[in-house]
Design a binder for these strands. Structure first.
Length: 469
RNA sequence: GCCCCCAUCGUCUAGCGGCCUAGGACACCGGCCUUUCACGCCGGCAGCACGGGUUCGAAUCCCGUUGGGGGUGCCA
């Protein structure tokens, strides 16, 4: 299985951005190639001129690079091989393995409906002997009997009776080759040994095989059809309906290494059960034959968990460095630096940082209603607590965590926020102070936050809050 | 309709005939820790779709049923 000269490929179509399903397919190809010391090639399948665009090619390349999935050699652009694809198709025409057909899709459907049979092409033009024109497409003539099958590393033996495979289009009436032709031809031309792609390609595989056989192109060594990635409705992920763009995840503040780690877990799992681990170990343990055949739900919650783990594991300097693109400016970066370690273990995404450090920025603070209500309205002796805090904090000469803590503790006692033993109840007492100074009822540890805020701003905010009470 | 595929906790998975009174992770629910939140730790909830076989023995093999999905384009 471990052939040192294996050659795999990821062949996206630039008719959409790179989504997590594509990314997972790219990753599994990449893992197999890197583990075996084989090659990972990239091919752009742009035979649909109407829907392909260079912007989409850029999006795909950018996302692949972001994920760290590199490739070997030059990118193969299918449009560059049009001529070879056409010639191959025409050679089939010469052999009588293909024929011209002028049936438009509507006509095919209408006939199917009229005869009450199954939808799909019925071989209407097989014997009509049509000539090539700008209204005819070239169709491949599939065998009427026999079986076409293949061995799939994920699914075992899969076979189709040839009579169930309809004649399919090789060349459009415009002369442009169709996906199946270009795909099969280029796989052979590139010497692809392992065809690893989504399960949605299974029904097309016998056509692919029949074509390669007819063209005398041989067959790839291995097929592996990966399970679909599905949404909460257990339906195949849709670029249109589901939020699955890799670029979007990048923009939301996910770490590429976390994304890759999570993607590796969809349809595969290490036998020792250790899910979060270095890429090198994943490469080492990954086996195509261990991929699960059943569909997997893309669970953002779990992705977030894994991302948070990776975020916390970052050296604090790197955390700040990598957070920079997600911060609105140098001011935010400056304040983040003062309490980064406290923030780092509280965020799951880079985009969660800014709201958490916003209180350290200059300017007026408007506590959110829910927090105000919770601490100031429903809190115990909120007014007394704020008064006592102002008085106590004013006296603090060394504006550092411990003195601040001592002052708030003393304020709690004088404000009557105490337990049965008459001791300060910090968990209750900090509420009004926290909301007054940070605007929220949750956040980084309070005394550290106040130390970073500074005495003047702390007192200003406490007084402003007191005025509202 | 026809063809193909799939089926272990809510979710992702381990399991590849006895080690399984089914393990881990996410989520969820308790508790501990604690200046809020988060982290961490401890504990809990919860699953082999169903029915037949094969076998001394089945989550693991076979068949069927049911359910789900994919394909069925002059899209890829």
């Amino acid at each position: 299985m471990t052939s040192a000269n294996s050659r795999l490929r990821f062949a996206p179509s630039p008719t959409g951005f790179l989504h997590v399903g594509n990314a997972r397919a790219a990753l599994f190809n990449w893992l197999e190639a890197r583990r075996t010391g084989g090659e990972m090639r990239l091919r752009v399948e742009d035979t649909d001129r109407e829907r392909s665009s260079s912007e989409l090619v850029e999006n795909i390349l950018t996302s692949l690079r972001w994920l760290g999935l590199d490739w070997d050699g030059e990118i193969v652009v299918q449009a560059d091989n049009l001529q070879a694809h056409r010639e191959a198709a025409l050679s089939l025409l010469d052999q009588g393995r293909a024929y011209w057909c002028d049936c438009v899709s509507e006509a095919v459907q209408a006939r199917a409906k009229a005869r009450g049979g199954p939808p799909g092409y019925d071989g209407f033009c097989r014997t009509r002997g049509l000539a090539r024109s700008d209204a005819t497409a070239l169709r491949f003539r599939t065998p009427d009997d026999g079986v076409t099958g293949f061995t799939d590393l994920v699914r075992g033996e899969v076979s189709f009776e040839n009579k169930t495979i309809e004649d399919f289009v090789l060349l459009r009436s415009t002369g442009m080759p169709m996906f199946l032709l270009s795909n099969a031809y280029d796989d052979a031309a590139m010497g692809i040994t392992h065809v690893v792609r989504g399960e949605d390609h299974v029904p097309g595989t016998p056509k692919y095989l029949l074509l390669r056989d007819a063209l005398g192109l041989g067959r790839p060594e291995v097929f592996a059809h990966l399970p679909m990635l599905v949404n909460e409705g257990r339906k195949k992920l849709s670029k249109r309906k589901d939020a699955v763009s890799v670029a979007d995840f990048a923009a939301q503040g996910y770490l590429p290494e976390a994304m890759v780690n999570y993607l590796a877990l969809l349809g595969w799992g290490p036998s020792d059960g250790i899910e979060i681990r270095p890429l090198a170990e994943i490469i080492e343990q990954f086996r195509l034959e261990d991929v699960t055949p059943s569909p997997a739900f893309f669970d953002v919650k779990k992705l977030q968990h894994i991302n948070a783990e990776y975020l916390r594991a970052l050296p604090v300097d790197e955390f700040i460095e990598r957070a920079r693109p997600f911060l609105s400016g140098p001011e935010v970066e400056a304040v983040l630096t003062t309490i980064a370690p406290l923030i780092q273990e509280r965020v799951r995404l880079f985009t969660e940082i800014e709201p958490m450090v916003a209180f350290l920025l200059d300017g007026p603070l408007t506590p959110d209603d829910a927090s105000w209500d919770k601490a100031m309205v429903k809190g115990i002796n909120a007014r007394e607590m704020v008064d006592a805090a102002i008085a106590g904090l004013t006296q603090v000469t060394e504006w550092e965590v411990e003195p601040i803590r001592a002052a708030v503790e003393a304020a709690a006692v004088s404000a009557g926020v105490v337990n049965a033993q008459g001791e300060a109840q910090l968990s209750k007492a900090q509420g009004p102070v926290r909301v007054a100074t940070t605007g929220r009822s949750v956040g980084p540890p309070l005394f550290e936050s106040l130390a970073a805020l500074g005495q003047t701003r702390t007192l200003d905010r406490l007084r402003a809050a007191r005025a509202r009470l």
